[in-house]
Structure formats: structure tokens, C-alpha cells
């Protein structure tokens, strides 16, 4: 049951922001797909290179580690928007619906608070990580921390969006990432 919102109302404005965040979500999901595909292909090539051609490529390992950090943090932000992180529902499910709604709000607020505190660490992390460089490729450790901060920033925006939509009693956002396994039939 989609809510119809009239132009000029608060809800209409929120929906416009949500449409922008839909776009952000799409970019996140596309990025992690690209990162995972690239890592899989590069690693396959590395095995071939080592076993068949007898050569080693040490940059692949560094790249692979970098990509894992980025994929995890970007993926974590994407999961926040669609409420698909691992959670324990059992206890809260036993509560009456109105109370559950308050729990939802409190959880969003708690995660938002965490992400805000972590975002405030940018200067400190920058000061202590930028001097350190990975031994082989010379990637500064800040390149890795950047992934974390992007994740916190986007995650915080998603939490705010969720809080506002809950308060205004609006529908949850559309899921961008696929959910169900799609089994092709007719083998």
C-alpha cells in the first residue's frame, strides 16, 4: 500500500530524499558486485599464473585485501538500509506491536549515535594512520580507513532516513538489493 504524498508536504520532501538515497544504495550495491567480481577473477588469474606460468604477483594479494575491506564496509552500509544485518529477533518479536515500533526507533537511534561517534574520529585516525604505509605496495593505511568512514557516513544517513520515516509513519524504503534466490528452471 504505497502512500501517496502531496507536493509541498514534509512527507513529499522525505520521499525525494529517499529517492536520492535509492540512488546511493544502487551505487553501493553495484560497487560491491564489481569489487567481488574483480577479486574473484584476479585470484583465479593468480592461481593460473603461479601454477601454470610459474610466476607470482604480489600486488594481487595487496589488492585483494584492500578490496575485502572496501567490500565489507560498503556492504555493511547497504545492509543497514534494508535492515538485513544479522539480528536476534526472538525477544522483540514477543512484544506487542506498538512497543516493537519504539524498539525499532531506539535501535536506529543507537546505531546512528555509534556511527556519529565513529565519524568524529576522522581527525584522530588520520593523524595516526596516515604515517603508516603497507610494506609492499606502499598503500597508506588511511586508504583502508576511508572505506570505514564512507560506510559510517552513508550508514548514518540511512539511519536518519529510517528514523524520520518511522516517526512520520511512512512505508519502509524499497529494497534495492535482491532478496530471494532465483533458481532458473528447465534444466
Amino acid at each position: 500500500m504505497p502512500t501517496t504524498t502531496r507536493p509541498g508536504t514534509v512527507r513529499h520532501a522525505v520521499d525525494r530524499v529517499s529517492r536520492f538515497l535509492d540512488l546511493v544504495q544502487r551505487v553501493l550495491v553495484t560497487s560491491i558486485v564489481v569489487i567481488l567480481s574483480a577479486s574473484a577473477l584476479l585470484l583465479l588469474w593468480q592461481v593460473f599464473d603461479r601454477l601454470v606460468l610459474g610466476q607470482g604477483q604480489n600486488w594481487i594479494e595487496e589488492y585483494a585485501r584492500l578490496s575485502l575491506v572496501w567490500m565489507t564496509f560498503l556492504g555493511a552500509a547497504a545492509l543497514l538500509r534494508e535492515h538485513r544485518h544479522l539480528t536476534v529477533e526472538y525477544v522483540v518479536d514477543k512484544f506487542p506491536a506498538p512497543l516493537r515500533r519504539w524498539f525499532g526507533l531506539a535501535v536506529d537511534a543507537a546505531v546512528l549515535a555509534l556511527l556519529t561517534v565513529l565519524l568524529l574520529q576522522i581527525p584522530a585516525v588520520w593523524a595516526s594512520s596516515s604515517v603508516l604505509v603497507s610494506p609492499s605496495l606502499g598503500i597508506p593505511r588511511t586508504t583502508l580507513a576511508l572505506a570505514a568512514f564512507i560506510s559510517y557516513g552513508i550508514g548514518a544517513a540511512y539511519c536518519l532516513e529510517s528514523i524520520v520515516r518511522r516517526v512520520l509513519d511512512m512505508d519502509p524504503v524499497r529494497r534495492i538489493a535482491t532478496d530471494d534466490a532465483t533458481e532458473t528452471s528447465g534444466i
Binding site: A76, L79, H85, L86, T87, Y90, V91, V107, V111
Partner: peptide, 8 residues
């Protein structure tokens, strides 16, 4: 138990 995602 309050349904905060485990990681967070």
C-alpha cells in the same frame, strides 16, 4: 536481544 544488529 534488543534487536540491534549483532555487529553494531
Amino acid at each position: 536481544f534488543a534487536r540491534v544488529p549483532v555487529a553494531y
